[in-house]
Amino acid sequence: MIYALAARLGQMALVMFGISVVVFLIFFATPGSDPSARIAGRNASQETLQQVRHDFGLDRPLPVQYALMMKKLFVTRDLTSFVNRGQKVIPTVTRAIPITLSLVIGAALLWLIGGLIVGLIAGATKGSWLDRTLMMISLAGVSMPVFWLGEVANLITQSRFHDSWAFSWVPALGYVPFGRDPLGWFQALVIPWIVLATLYVGLYGRVLRASLIETMQEDFIRMARAKGIGERQVLLRHGLRTSLVAFVTMFGLDFGALVGGGALLTEVVFGLQGVGKLTYDALQTLDLPMIMATVIYASFFVVMANFVVDVVHMFLDPRVRDAF
């Protein structure tokens, strides 16, 4: 177990190193990405340009720049943004983490419950109109781009029906810190939670349904029925419990990616300054230090999520336990 953990950490470091190098190279390979002129300002004189380039170390060879950036990121931890000069990248990311976590955890709870219910009902009533309806709605949920759904939600709750009794409680777009105002925190996040969860409820519902239907064809289901324990028990204790493995595995990976900033479109649409939005802004403005920080943060979480999923898999499926 310890060995497995150590091996994982080693893998993680390797992956993050690889990603950081690739990001770095892509940035400098992009034509027009040289930040000196943008930092120096519009119509800067050539001397100013040279000065800026020197100040930012942009006239040094690439490997040196990479090493310097990594040092600033990990060792001295004072890497600053190219675009918002003086803004330290790491504290900015750290401050954005609770916002992303609030969004993602809330949505995850919603879609776990929702996906479970949808998948279970659809799988259990396979072929019925209920099953078909649920699957159609799920498909619609999966097909709707999250930013479109978010904008439509905004249109309804912020703009058109904002003053109606249904939505007058919806506060202005943006994040309200929990410590400052728990109720406001909750109110501001409800609509983003629902929007983000919709896609996943559809997806997970369909996956669970398929998994469940497949599981219910297994012999042990027939055996369980032969024991006379009742169909509901058969469905839940034997069918669902066994299908959960695929469900939970998928969840772990999706959740990891989202915590790493994958919900960026939702964050942009709802004005939540989470890690995803930071990534989005940094990509728009080609702010290399910020890009590097958010990408490394994201890759850390994806690798971590993989690891956690493996551990959880072990708990859920005893057959895998002994393989360790």
Partner: peptide, 27 residues
Amino acid sequence: RRALDRIRGKKIGMIFQDPMTSLTPVH
């Protein structure tokens, strides 16, 4: 079904060919 479940397992038991697939792997 309800009445059948009272008989299955209690009055009539059944076993199948492959014991590996007859048992639920997670319990």
